[in-house]
Amino acid sequence: MTGTPLLETRALTKEFRGFRAVSDVDLTVAQGTVHALVGPNGAGKTTLFNLLTGFLTPTSGTVTFDGQDITGRAPEQIAPLGIARSFQITSLFEAMTLREHLELALASPTGMGKQWWRSVTRMATFKDRAMDLLEQVGLADRAGAPASSLAYGQKRALELAIAMALDPKLLLLDEPTAGMGIEDVDRTIALVKQLSAGRTVVFVDHNMHVVGSLADQVTVLQSGQILAEGPYEQVRADERVITAYLGATHE
């Protein structure tokens, strides 16, 4: 059902010792849309992500997901509800193989991770699904390699596969193309498009090409507040946004 909100924040605020990193943010993400968060460095995008996923507790305001108030819940409580995230700085388990990463993600909702009396070979229950996901992101041939042996772009692709393994209702991607060359960027755009079909996605990115190709809706943040909101073309033409990005001196 496109249109009804999947995620809503009301007056969401986070203060760090008097500094308001996120201030009174009312964000509404409609079901089935791809929503971009943009803004200059320090605008509060990653803080907002951490508030949505429970890695930070808001100073005030609420977060509602799928009709449930999830304000102040821990990450491990929020993840099972159907919110998966990727991290801005590639965040993997360096010693594990690619397949092991996905098996770990797939095993999470089943509670298998609690079994200390059984052989780890039971994790192979998830092998087929893990290989499917690796296939989708083009890493199937590296399934047995440790994550530390991957190139940067491949690590980002693995991040996406891990997030998809949780079969999330809402996918949060923190700068999926950060630090990538143009070829990797285009490949990632195609990958996100393919993976996110029929899902709701919120992503942060600085690359306007990425934002323009993916986003249905764009929210511009500045100094922790929402500066502008709307479809990409409309936001791009907004005077305030141009000023925020280029500085006030350009006229």
Partner: peptide
């Protein structure tokens, strides 16, 4: 064990383990 696998994940990257 599967439990041991999770422990390794906790050791190497607690934030990622929580996000899972």
């Amino acid at each position: 064990s599967p439990f041991g696998r999770v422990l390794t994940a906790v050791r190497d990257n607690p934030a990622r383990a929580r996000a899972l």
